[in-house]
């Protein structure tokens, strides 16, 4: 791959190895995320899915390898990347409301010594509207359901106004309404040319929701368009023996029994 094409790749991960106490969590992973895709990262527990996202975001220092965002380091491209952490990673008893949490998405743009004002508030209300949460703007965050909390996180990512959206299990523990709301937002993002990468757990919905998939189990087993790489064989390589469940998941793609 030559140097110019890197510039066109939202995320390019090269020979990435991440270790925890000299135990590899990710082993020599290569992933290219093409412009404008909706990519799912799937793999069993402990496969390194969250670690991959966090390493791309510079939250974890890799043992080896390189991450580039449109050809440059994450630090230089910070404002082009939005992040949705796992819902369980924060304390929802924190004294604040939904609108305030959404406004946090602008803190990076504001920079030091500047406080969010009326314009940020307006952007946050618009983002809440996009995820169908405007009615809950002033609701204390602990009084939101899990699905509503996830939508608040999504709104916070929208307000970052990025080109690349990295999401750690956005569908984790949400109700059907929220799942539909989230997928609509993801498609809208794709529609305006953004790129979305999401850690995903439900294999059955991969072909419906995403167009690209990365199958990960410490190593990158396969990565590409869903119809090419989301095969029984690749899933078996990723998950090991539990093939009956996998057969059901790939049915939509390959028409296999």
């Amino acid at each position: 791959m030559n140097a110019t094409s890197y510039k066109d790749l939202p995320v390019s991960v090269e020979d990435l190895t991440v270790a925890y106490r000299y135990e590899p969590v990710l082993w020599d992973v290569d992933v290219d995320v093409p412009q404008g895709t909706l990519m799912a990262i799937v793999g069993p527990n402990g496969a390194g899915k969250s670690t991959l996202i966090k390493t791309v975001l510079g939250l974890i220092e890799p043992a080896a390898g390189r991450v580039s965002i449109y050809g440059e380091s994450f630090k230089e491209q910070r404002n082009r990347v939005a992040y949705v952490p796992q819902r369980g990673s924060v304390d929802w008893d924190f004294p604040t409301d939904a609108l305030d949490v959404v406004m946090m998405g602008r803190y990076g743009h504001l920079g030091w010594l500047r406080h969010p004002g009326a314009d940020t508030r307006k952007l946050a209300m618009e983002a809440l509207e996009k995820v169908g949460m405007q009615k809950y703007a002033n609701r204390q965050i602990s009084q939101l359901s899990g699905g509503q909390q996830q939508r608040v996180f999504l709104a916070r990512a929208l307000i970052q106004d990025a080109e690349i959206y990295l999401m750690d299990e956005p569908f984790q523990g949400v109700d059907a309404t929220t799942e539909r709301a989230i997928i609509e937002v993801l498609r809208a993002l794709q529609g305006r040319g953004s790129t979305v990468v999401a850690v995903h757990h439900d294999l059955e919905t991969v072909p419906e929701y995403f167009d690209h998939v990365l199958l990960l189990n410490v190593r990158a087993i396969a990565c590409g368009p869903v119809e090419d790489v989301f095969t029984q064989e690749n899933l078996r390589k990723t998950y090991g023996g539990r093939t009956d469940m996998l057969a059901a998941a790939t049915k939509n793609v390959n028409g296999n029994p």
């Binding site: 975001l57 910070r78 992040y83 946090m104 803190y107 030091w112």
Partner: peptide
């Protein structure tokens, strides 16, 4: 705002 975001969500704070 820095105190608030690093208290509530240090992961996002670092990414920002």
């Amino acid at each position: 705002k820095e105190l608030k975001i690093t208290t509530f969500d240090p992961g996002l704070a670092a990414a920002l």
